[in-house]
Write a protein that binds this DNA or RNA. Structure first.
Length: 575
RNA sequence: CGGGGAGUGGCUUAGUGGUAUAGCGCUCGCUUGGGGUGCGAGAGGUCCCGAGUUCGAUUCUCGGCUCCCCGACCA
């Protein structure tokens, strides 16, 4: 591709609203432009990379035996009502009406459509298993889009869905796609890790997230250094600590704690460590109030709470509900006497509560706390459980080692769905015994546009992008340092030859200053660069420089030819 | 949704109660030619929108919209 005829508007400065390095570089290098918050235009160079990524994914999924389809972006309300997600999905689902007033949404994912599709055409176990996938635009009306295309509202995604007749076959397919994902992300050149994750709005039995390791990642990952268990921190289970020996228990004492509303203030005021505090959080789980006891400095993991209660939704109680239940203002709720006052409100306690002896708790009375509160003696929760968001010091539930924490970008997610959608939408089949059964499903996503951004996050320098070979928009960048004369003539020849050999070449034939050409080449980040210039041409040589290396080499044209034939310059197309 | 900040040529920005600054980019001429060359001449702006205050508002006030940041939410 001749740069003189190619639309790559590069910028010296990044727009001020670009918030991370990949967004800055993608804008500067002319891959994308922003249309609106979380919505982007993809320019030729960006699209090329997207297609590269897409092709690798397609190759591996086809190899695994999946079939590509193309599903609608605009999906009818009824379908979403059938699965129950028209209500459950919430505001993230962008809804609208057509001219007749019928409800539609823009697809954030496609379980409904695909399940319906398969249910219509598959009715026998003989037609299973089956795995379909598509590439398509997805829309999720995020509350706060940010990080460029990393967390966009409109994005490009590959989504796959497997249908199986029995558990074993379903698990085999899960593993098959999982393995394909490992191959895909390896081919992209990623440093990544598959971790256990929450299933969120998609639902299902369990899931894995594929995380590209990067300091700028939005997700925190807990990794057990001993047994290898790793999970998204929001999902990480914690080994229950051993209960404290209840010795030297003192009598409860009431203390006045005026205006002490935070644990930190209290700890300071009473001169006690935060882990000695029992805080009470009031939640609403599907509109029913529930109280949870946590250790002072610990954070409640709402996902764990939701799971424990099998609730669809949990949210913090508002001030009114809090006041009613705690008979106090925010900050003074406590477990002592709580059940007597609220026999119908479930009282839960985090496992760590059992480590507290002679603790401090709210007195359910304004500006008052209780000292020397002890579990069992002074209060008995309805249940203990693991409600704590994993943090430093917590231990692996499998082997007891303390967790390490790293950050990652979620580029892929595999779900073992079970029969959640097939049961809701009557995707049934007849088995050998003539029994009607719902298909067992799995679903599998890769954020294609996010993969691109993650690649840049993981591989760039001060001058610009450094593409991994597999997804680079071009194999080779060729620069003619003169826009005319001998240099241009020779460059044209080289370009011609490279193209003949099947390399994709970005050829800078513009009438620009050498400096501009070098800067643009570094910014755009093609792995291999050839330069034809006045300095070396009389010696019959040209320069070769790898974007991965600091030093350049000088080759004669004969040497270039030889290397190209031996494919010493590795090219992705050669696969 | 709560808190904070910002909207001035394509991009980055200065500034002002009397319609606007500079750099980059763009066009033209000369110059230069291995890391964004130098000089000169140009084109390009409803100063986010609406209302109010004022003789006069891009500037002050209010409302709205958009964008950004922190949090909550989502995954």
């Amino acid at each position: 591709m001749k740069l003189s005829q190619y639309y790559i508007p590069t910028l010296k400065e990044a727009p001020k609203d670009a918030d991370i390095i990949s967004a800055k570089l993608m804008t500067r290098a002319g891959l994308i432009r922003k249309t609106a918050s979380g919505i982007y235009e993809w320019l030729p160079l960006g699209l090329r990379v997207l297609k590269k990524i897409e092709n690798i994914i397609r190759e591996e999924l086809d190899r695994a035996g999946c079939n590509e389809v193309w599903l609608p972006v605009v999906q009818p309300q009824e379908l979403w009502e059938e699965s129950g997600r028209w209500t459950y999905y919430g505001k993230e689902l962008l809804r609208f009406k057509d001219r007749k007033g019928a409800g539609f949404c823009l697809a954030p994912t496609a379980e409904e459509v695909i399940t319906k599709l398969v249910s219509k055409d598959v009715s026998s176990y003989k037609q299973l298993p089956l795995c379909l996938y598509q590439f398509g635009t997805k829309f999720r009306d995020e509350i706060r889009p940010r990080f460029g295309v990393m967390r966009a509202r409109e994005f490009y995604m590959k989504d796959a869905y497997s249908f199986a007749a029995d558990e074993q076959s379903a698990n085999e397919w899960y593993q098959r796609v999982y393995d394909a994902y490992v191959e895909i992300f390896t081919r992209f050149g990623f440093k990544f890790k598959a971790v256990e994750a929450d299933t969120g709005a998609i639902g299902g039995n369990f899931s894995h997230e594929f995380m590209v390791l990067a300091q700028t990642g939005e997700n925190e990952i807990s990794v057990c250094p001993k047994c290898g268990y790793s999970a998204n921190t929001e999902k990480t289970e914690i080994k229950a600590p051993s209960a404290a020996e209840q010795q030297g228990l003192r009598e409860i004492e009431e203390v006045s704690t005026p205006n002490m509303r935070t644990i930190a203030e209290l700890a300071n005021f009473l001169n006690r460590p935060q882990e000695n505090f029992i805080k009470m959080l009031i939640y609403k789980a599907d509109d029913k109030p529930v109280a949870v006891l946590m250790r002072g400095e610990d954070e409640l993991n709402e996902i764990k709470l939701r799971k424990f209660l099998s609730a669809n939704e949990v949210e913090k109680a508002d001030a009114e509900l809090y006041a009613k239940i705690a008979s106090s203002d925010l900050g003074f709720a406590g477990p002592v006497g709580f059940k007597q006052k609220n026999p119908n409100v479930k009282l839960l306690a985090d496992n760590y509560i059992k480590t507290i002896v002679n603790g401090v708790a709210g007195a359910n009375k304004l500006d008052t706390h209780l000292l020397n509160v002890n579990f069992e003696r002074d209060f008995t929760p309805d249940a203990y459980g693991d409600f704590k968001l994993a943090s430093k010091g917590d231990a692996c539930p499998h082997c007891g080692a303390k967790f390490d924490f790293i950050r990652g970008i979620e580029v892929g997610h595999t779900f073992k769905l079970g029969t959640k959608y097939s049961a809701a939408m009557n995707a049934n089949f007849l088995d050998e015994k003539q029994e009607n059964k719902p298909m067992i499903m799995g679903c599998y996503g890769i954020g294609v546009s996010r993969v691109l951004a993650a690649a840049i996050e993981q591989s760039h320098d001060d001058n610009g992008i450094i593409w991994p070979e597999a997804i680079s928009p071009f194999d080779i960048c060729l620069i003619a340092l003169d826009g005319e004369g001998e240099v241009k003539k020779k460059s044209d020849e080289v370009y011609q030859r490279l193209s003949e050999l099947g390399y994709s070449v970005l050829y800078d034939d513009r009438d620009e200053r050498p400096g501009s050409k070098f800067k643009d080449a570094d910014l755009v980040g093609i792995p291999h660069r050839l330069v034809v210039g006045k300095k070396l041409l009389p010696e019959g040589k040209l320069e070769y420089k790898s974007r991965y290396a600091a030093k350049a080499d000088f080759w004669t044209f004969a040497e270039l030819e030889e290397k190209l034939k031996k494919t010493a310059v590795n090219i992705s197309n050669a696969r």
